[in-house]
């Protein structure tokens, strides 16, 4: 069950650190752990089990994410690896880390807000923002614009 130092396998905390360095393929400024989609890391015998939950059921990045996880962990010498999909509890943007939110905003994507819309423009900080469309360039985003600096921007949908 627990990390197998006695078996010479990397411990679970080490694996989490490696996963923290794997970027989201569509928003590479944040990592998979920032996004909150890695739900569990553990060993069953000497097989490492990484449990992943999808953001949106049809997100085309899901298979790339699995490939990136596998590539990263194999690169760190993990030989026996299994990825498991977990649907429940369903992913929520509440699982995004604070550092993930900060990185999104610095990148120009307004982070998810419980109020259902961005609190300010990620470019100029103005609160004069309006929705253009409930959907955007990826399944997890919507399109908004700032009426102060007139720049459009992506808003990470809150679900």
């Amino acid at each position: 069950m627990s990390a197998g130092r006695e078996t010479g396998l990397p411990d679970v905390a080490q694996v989490w650190t490696w996963l923290h360095a794997v970027p989201d393929p569509e928003i590479p400024v944040i990592s998979l752990t920032d996004l909150g989609i890695i739900r569990d890391v553990d060993y069953e015998g000497d097989t490492l089990i990484v449990t992943v939950t999808p953001t949106y059921s049809g997100c085309p990045a899901t298979s790339i994410i699995n490939l990136d996880i596998e590539t990263a962990l194999r690169g760190h010498g993990i030989e026996k690896l299994e990825l498991r999909r977990k649907l429940s509890p369903a992913w929520t943007t509440d699982w995004m880390t604070q550092s993930g939110r900060d990185k999104l905003e610095a990148y120009g994507i307004a982070p998810p807000q419980p109020a259902g819309g961005p609190d300010k423009c990620p470019h100029c900080g103005s609160q004069l923002v309006e929705k253009m469309s409930q959907f955007g360039s990826t399944p997890c985003k919507a399109q908004w614009r700032c009426t102060a600096c007139l720049e459009p921007f992506d808003y990470f949908k809150c679900i």
Binding site: P54, Y56, S57, P60, S133, F135, G136
Partner: peptide, 20 residues
């Protein structure tokens, strides 16, 4: 354009649910 993107995203969600 915005409606085009919205419809494509809606279709994508539906196809994702289909896979499940």
């Amino acid at each position: 354009l915005e409606e085009d993107i919205a419809l494509a995203n809606t279709a994508l969600d539906l196809i994702g649910q289909t896979q499940l």
